[in-house]
Nucleic acid binder design. Structure first.
Length: 931
RNA sequence: GGUCGAUUAGCUCAGUGGUAGAGCGCUUGCUUCACACGCAAGAUGUCACUGGUUCAAAUCCAGUAUCGACCACCA
């Protein structure tokens, strides 16, 4: 027998087109041999071999010289260290759907993939490995050796997520895979830096930045995650110099920074403290006299209304310090251990150890008043997940370019944000935009393309402010090209923020710096961007700025923001919670198509998605349903004409017209759902059509046409309709379930050797084009009437416990003109012996019947039920229920029960009574009808 | 504190002015010659709450409550 499912067969030695179909051999409906086919679809091997087939045929490769209209999309590059999670699955499935749909619509598609070097994340991983395996730090082995290690690591582990995307079926143009640290890409990064410096938008200065003590680098504001913390608020007192024995009380969460205190600030409007402004108070350790200053920032309502000022370790304090011309005393090392030799008790301690120790010291000195529990927000480093330390350091900053165009493009809809409300988030960020700290004290990344003249390096590196305006001529070399005389220069030690390369992604991937590129001409600006709303600031907005500034236009036209995936309890997916299922496991279990479809069908637009494995199971079941519909078709024989055309067929039945018309409707509805990026709706439409319309109705209605006693014409027509609809349907489904549709199309002969569904253009014409509209609507109406009638008759059977009986007969006295012609089909759908039109029929009294779209139909019961046995059964049942009703009534009639039982218990009892009584009435009615 | 969401069946979610829906789960009956990853029948709802607009509101407006996200934060 033919190996139809191709189970367990590799495709390595064989292209899919070369598989010989047993199609022409024709197997009768009653053939027993077919039952040897696997009953369930087994996706794993099928998916892997089709992916390879697409790759072999270069289906994903974009041709910049093509005449077709362009469609392009750049992948949000996953971290090179990344492992696929469900967020990636959702995001990339959407991109794949868009890309595949665009191909079907006749576009030349470029889906450009790649990975991001992910500065801190990657460096941290390799540092950890170095520590675990060799017990060394990166400083032990030096910059060059360390970078070598990172590259080694990248080569070894960097491709994991790419392999995983391939497993998912992503149709990326892998021949154009990019990495943000590719040599060509890096040139762009340096050039952009140099250009912005020369434009005066990049400058270097000593500022307060977010410092990560673990990674020992500055971070941008966006990389700081505020977290609610249960902290302590320490109330302490500073003695007034002029008035010994009198104290000023302050409250702080950070007593360990006390050594850096240079003032106490109060609100000038605060009457309690007004008289102290200008006086001096005693700082306990190291002992010093510090002034009381007035500043509007201080909130009189909070704590004691007096605030200790530590300009080196708090952003607000820093600003107050600037306004009041205060000294800045840094009391921490780069790793946030205390740097204060004057206080040996604290010197060298970790900041959190120092906090406890400082508090204890204050208590000893009698200066600690009380300690309160206090909830506050603490900024955490996104990567290292430790509290960041506000710290003054020398960093490079960027004043964002093209901010006005960027804000305008989104506000005015030149770039469409979907859902549109994210445009507001974009606007509010653009509104309060702060200069971007772009330097990082890391090694893994793009090194800042700034060289200092060797003989002046010390002065230059210590210069408080370094801009285009104040640099000494010829002392700096800022360029994408290193100096020609490297021996005279020293390069800046720092690297750039990862996002400083990411923001160039849409064009730096398409075009090398010095070359004209066909790619960029054909495919830039890109069409769609699909990403998460959590990186609007990190990435999306910045890409728009870079696009305007360096390419003179916007980088994409539409941005689709995906849902954030949560677990079933609504928690974020995270490694530490262990609530993040491995998509690869899910694909092995349910198939990539099942995972894709399940996720897409329920993914809400613009809201969080609660992931439930049951969704994926549903996707797999759906794949199986389609597979089995096709399997059924295969068993039914091969009598279909290859070029069946509904418009040329004169023997179409209502069910044929109905399903053909529904299929055309589906194609139209898909169009509008895609136009609005309503992916869940697209999925739902595909699901409903196949399951409800095609399988439950159409297939069941036409089964009679395929029985052994059917005529050749009946068979050919039905098979022809089946094939026309299924071939079209598989095309429509292809973006969601690419592997399955490719497999079935080939197996069914809808595609032939060397053809791919993914390359086949979606026809513009409908299946029913050319068919008389009146005929269509009449047919659809009749089909609808038959389906409705069938449902009512089934219902009637079930009511009389005859659902499983095949020998039930239905009799109509009158009916629509077509009833006689469709009576057999009706009987087939209902599972009845027959539906008979008999004008002379006089129903006996009590004969059950139903009024339907096909007229009133009766269901005579004689001979169907052993009346006496059924009577006995019903009597027994009725007796049982009567007992229950009696019990329940007794309970509710008992005053003590009603008064003392919990109200909900009484309510449940009442509900139960109603239920029992309803059932009783129903049974009594049935009993009455039994004669 | 500000902004934006969400609140519909036991669960996950559709539904944007016109008879409350799907899948899963549940109950009942079916190994019916594609499919038990299935078929058929069935039960299940104060559409969060309060007002308003309207002939008509789950849907539009206002407010309230709860949950969530983002932004800004009081040390």
């Amino acid at each position: 027998m033919l190996d139809w499912s191709r189970r367990g067969r590799g495709r390595s030695d064989q292209s899919p087109g070369s598989v010989v179909l047993a199609w022409g051999e024709g197997v009768g409906y009653s053939s027993r041999a077919m039952s040897e086919l696997p009953k369930a679809y087994e996706p794993t091997e099928v998916e892997k071999s089709w992916y390879q087939a697409w790759l072999d045929a270069k289906c994903f490769e974009a041709d910049p010289s093509s005449e077709k209209p362009p469609y392009s999309i750049v992948i949000p590059p996953p971290n090179v260290t990344g492992i696929l999670h469900l967020g990636h699955v959702l995001n990339n499935t959407i991109q794949d759907i868009l890309a595949r749909r665009a191909r079907q619509k006749g576009c030349e598609v470029l889906w450009l993939p790649g990975t991001d070097h992910a500065g801190i994340a990657t460096q941290t991983k390799v540092e950890r490995q170095l520590r675990d395996e060799e017990g060394k730090t990166r400083r032990d082995i030096g910059r060059e050796a360390f970078l070598e290690k990172v590259w080694e690591w990248k080569e070894k582990h960097g491709g994991i997520i790419i392999k995983q995307l391939k497993r998912l079926g992503c149709s990326c143009d892998w021949s154009r895979e990019r990495f943000t640290m590719d040599a060509d890409y890096s040139k762009w990064v340096s050039k952009v830096f140099a250009d912005l410096f020369n434009e005066g938008l990049i400058y270097r200065g000593k500022r307060m930045v977010n410092w990560c003590p673990v990674s020992r680098t500055a971070l941008s504001d966006e990389e700081v995650i505020p977290k609610k913390q249960n902290s302590k608020l320490y109330y302490m007192k500073y003695e007034l110099v002029d008035e010994p024995g009198k104290f000023l009380e302050v409250a702080t969460t950070r007593p360990e920074t006390l050594m850096g205190d240079v003032a106490v600030a109060v609100n000038p409007k605060d009457e309690r403290y007004g008289r102290y402004v200008g006086k001096l108070v005693k700082r306990p350790f190291p002992a010093a006299e510090i002034p009381v200053v007035a500043d509007d920032h201080v909130d009189p309502e909070f704590g004691t209304g007096a605030l200790k000022i530590t300009p080196a370790h708090d952003k607000a304090d820093f600003e107050i310090g600037m306004r009041n011309d205060l000294e800045i005393i840094d009391v921490f090392h780069a790793d946030a251990t205390v740097n204060c030799p004057e206080v040996p008790e604290l010197d060298g301690l970790d900041r959190f150890v120092a906090r406890k120790k400082a508090s204890a010291m204050l208590e000893e000195m009698g200066l600690l008043i009380k300690v309160e529990e206090h909830e506050n927000n603490v900024g955490f480093s996104e990567r290292a997940d430790v509290p960041i330390e506000p710290r003054i350091s020398m960093q490079w900053f960027l004043k964002y370019p093209a901010t006005e165009e960027t804000a305008k493009a989104v506000a005015e809809g030149e770039i469409d944000y979907r859902p549109a409300r994210w445009a507001k988030t974009h606007a509010s960020w653009m509104d309060g935009i702060q200069d971007w700290c772009v330097s990082r004290q890391l090694w893994w990344g793009h090194r800042i393309p700034v060289w200092y003249r060797k003989d002046k390096v010390e002065t230059l590196q210590e210069a408080e402010s370094l801009t285009l305006d104040n640099l000494g001529a010829g002392d700096l070399h800022v360029s994408a090209v290193p100096p020609v005389d490297p021996e005279n220069w020293v390069q800046d030690e720092d690297v750039l923020d990862t996002w400083f390369s990411s923001w160039l992604w849409p064009f730096a991937t398409m075009q090398n710096l010095d070359e004209d590129s066909d790619l960029v001409k054909k495919f830039y600006p890109t069409t769609d961007l699909v990403t998460g709303p959590d990186i609007i600031f990190f990435w999306v907005a910045r890409m728009i700025m870079a696009g305007y500034r360096f390419k003179g236009e916007l980088p994409f036209r539409n941005v689709f923001f995906t849902s954030i995936i949560r677990d079933i309890q609504g928690r974020k997916m995270s490694k530490s919670l262990g609530n993040s299922p491995d998509p690869i496991d899910l694909m092995e279990k349910y198939g990539a198509d099942g995972l894709r479809f399940g996720l897409m069908r329920t993914a809400p637009i613009g809201a969080d998605l609660r992931f439930d494995e049951a969704q994926v199971e549903e996707g797999r079941n759906f794949a199986n349903k389609i597979y089995n519909a096709c399997r059924f078709r295969r068993m039914a024989g091969s009598d279909s004409e290859v070029n069946f055309k509904p418009s040329e067929c004169e023997t179409l039945r209502p069910y044929h017209l109905d399903i053909l018309s529904k299929c055309d409707e589906l194609a139209k509805n898909q169009e509008s759902a895609y136009a609005e990026y309503r992916f869940n709706e697209v999925g739902q439409q595909l699901y409903d059509f196949l399951w409800s319309e095609f399988c439950d109705k159409f297939l069941e209605a036409v089964k009679g046409d395929l029985h052994d006693d059917a005529t050749q014409v009946q068979r050919e027509t039905t098979l022809g309709v089946f094939d026309s609809v299924m071939a079209r349907y598989l095309q429509l489904l292809h973006p969601y379930m690419p592997h399955l549709t490719e497999e079935l199309s080939l197996r069914m002969g809808y595609t032939t050797e060397g053809q791919f569904v993914m390359e086949k253009k979606l026809p513009v014409s409908g299946l029913l084009d050319g068919v008389d509209a009146g005929m269509i609507s009449e047919g659809c109406e009749q089909a609808a009437a038959v389906y409705e009638t069938a449902a009512k008759l089934r219902n009637l059977k079930a009511e009389y416990r005859l659902a499983a009986r095949k020998d039930v007969r239905f009799i109509a006295k009158t009916g629509p003109s077509w009833l006689e012609a469709e009576a057999d089909t009706l009987a087939l759908l209902v599972g009845a012996e027959g539906v008979i039109l008999d004008e002379s029929y006089i129903p006996e009294q009590g004969t059950p019947g139903a009024v339907t779209a096909s007229g009133e139909l009766f269901m005579p019961l004689e001979g169907l039920v052993d009346v006496e046995a059924e009577k006995a059964r019903l009597d027994k049942e009725i007796e049982k229920i009567q007992k229950e009703v009696g019990k329940s009534k007794g309970k509710l009639g008992n005053e003590k029960f009603v008064a003392n039982a919990k109200p909900e218990v009484v309510a449940i009892e009442r509900e139960r009574l109603v239920e029992w009584e309803g059932k009783l009435a129903q049974l009594q009615e049935m009993r009455k009808n039994l004669r």
